[in-house]
Design a protein around this nucleic acid. Structure first.
Lengths: 193, 193
DNA sequence: GTCTATACCTGGATAGAC
DNA sequence: GTCTATCCAGGTATAGAC
């Protein structure tokens, strides 16, 4: 997501620095001037490419959300069983946390509706509805226990998202993929000894 | 928390309205003027009771954190087994979400370190370390599976916190205590059919 | 302790040259 | 498309009367 091996145009550069600053200090603690200085671009240039500050935030969200959806779609095509799908999604999320920390931070650990108007909470976004779909199908096919899908989903992915947030906040110090097996074991078979 | 059957003094009134506005619109979308108008107090009065806007946020956090710690302490005194303790804590959290939604919102669903300086992420706060303690003791006594405590904790409480956030965001429409049994079942014995 | 008035500054956004 | 200079609103915070 936001591949920046070589920043081609100004637009990319602006998005890239904005993402860095938004995740680092938060949206409201980042002024347009900050972005301007950090990216060594002019104010005019920023406002040429984006209508306003909020539009930058919106563009970032759309970009990241889209790559997440693509990734999960790939997993769903390649994998039929609900269990394998869930585990593969977790694997992807954990790896992305290490490889694209800022993007994951922005996607999972920011309150977009506080700065993007008409934006619902993340859980209503497309990647999340895909995750719920996996669960619903899993229950229908008898692979997953027949409980309220939302509860099951929150048990699997909610816990994972919290773990990702802990990692982003620097509370967990080992790379998340190292915990994948253990986490998955715990989710599938519970915590009871 | 923040018992406001009858608002005695101005200080309480300010805190109470600030909490409402902070959770409703977010800290940065709430100006001191907003608090002043909404509480029908004067700016001078606010700055008499609090050093600055941040101090209001700090006071709120301390107050809510303190009542949560008291509540969990009570549970730990009354309940010996790790399982019962966890379930009781979940019950408390779910009920508090319904009865003190704003307080829970502020505690669990806000990024304090973006507006309170020198404040770590919530997970480093006292209520959360108590939760981890419950798990660690449970593992030691053989009641909980012998896995990394953080992973187990995030599986139980992380999922619960996400569920609380979903409820706060209006995505879950039934009161959380209704899901307690199901959630707990799912956590203890896993999601595998 | 509470009020009103106001100072001061930073933030978002625009204008217009190049 | 990019720059510099600038405008203006709204934010936090203070001063000083009552």
């Amino acid at each position: 997501m936001i591949v920046t091996d070589k920043i081609t145009d100004r637009r990319e550069l602006i998005l890239d620095t904005a993402l860095r600053l938004f995740t680092d200090r938060g949206y409201f603690n980042t002024s347009v001037r900050d972005i301007q200085k950090e990216a060594t671009v002019s104010t005019g240039s920023i406002y040429h490419h984006f209508e306003n500050k909020e539009a930058i935030a919106k563009a970032l969200l759309a970009q990241i959300e889209s790559t997440m959806v693509d990734e999960i779609d790939l997993i769903m095509e390649a994998t039929p069983s609900a269990h394998d799908r869930c585990k593969a999604v977790l694997k992807y999320l954990f790896e992305a946390t290490e490889n694209n920390r800022d993007a994951m931070h922005y996607m999972l650990h920011a309150k977009h509706n506080e700065f993007i108007s008409n934006e619902g909470p993340i859980c209503t976004s497309r990647p999340f509805s895909l995750m719920k779909t996996i669960i619903v199908e899993g229950i229908r096919k008898g692979e997953v226990r027949n409980l309220t899908p939302e509860i099951v989903a929150v048990n699997i992915f909610g816990g994972a998202i919290r773990l990702i947030c802990l990692r982003i906040d620097g509370v967990v110090d080992k790379p998340l993929p190292m915990y994948l097996e253990e986490f998955w074991e715990c989710t599938c078979y519970g915590i009871t000894a």
